[in-house]
Amino acid sequence: MSRETILNLVVLAALFLVALAASLSGQPYLVTLATKATILGLAGIGLNLALGYGGLVSFGHAAFFGIGGYAAGILASAAQNYEPLMTWPVELPGTTSMPIIWLTAVIAAGLVALPIGALSLRTGGVHFIMITLAFAQMVYYFAISWPAYGGEDGLSIYVRNTLGTLDTMSPWTFFLISYALLLLVLGLVLMATRSRFGLALAMARQNPLRLTSMGVRPFNVRLTAFVLSAMAVGLAGALYADLNRFVSPTMLSWHLSGELIVFVILGGVGRPCGPLIGAALYVLLESELGRLTEYWQLPLGIILLLVVLFARGGVIGLVTGRRSHA
């Protein structure tokens, strides 16, 4: 096993054990913190598919995170208020069933990502960064000015959604659900990157001309990666909405897109577990610095600057002593 694989297993085990220990010793706050790290890590792993493996620096993935969140919020609030979701062309009721909500979130995020990706991928480099940011802002302003779903105030989910007969309101149960989904998505991402598609994606990043000469259009490969990545982020968004039992346009804000990028870079770009490490570190820093000072973003910003300037390759790069990714 490589040092990176060992580190990945250690991190996954540590996350689980921290949550378990916190649950056994009656510290629900810590379990929730671990759940937050899990869900944000899941979002980061999704973004990493486009950003790390595909070299597509999307600064707009908050849009998909928020869409996943709103999918959960809208379905749940319709069900909780006993109002139909829509009455035309067919009458659709809301639901509080998690699997249906996850599926809706994933499909909705993918459907929105398709046109955004198709348009943004006409360009590359710095254009791509700015355009994905602008599209995410478009979704953000739409959510703010559209009054049906709470507008600026957001939507509350009064009781966490249901999964079979499980007690999802218990922090430990909800952690386990999130953790299982994290493992599932991590496995899918690993499978994707090792498949023919993953090889094509790596070549689209390193040498698109060569990929073209092999008879594969880089655009198609990139678009697939972009949409898949958005779907994973959408799933994370739905979980995050359930964790907080609240959705608001903040989930769509460009700040969140920036944070998702931070998770990926902090852990290590193009490393399977990098974003999880990054997210866990970020959540830890946020809660620890937040305890020290009201102005916790100031030291956080300085730490991030130091990481960019001096710790290229992120935490995994530091541990394994290798800068290069995937």
Binding site: F59, G258, Q297, L300, G301, I302, L304
Partner: peptide, 9 residues
């Protein structure tokens, strides 16, 4: 992107 995002913070 990351460095200038950190500068914003």
């Amino acid at each position: 992107v990351l460095a200038t995002f950190a500068l914003i913070l």
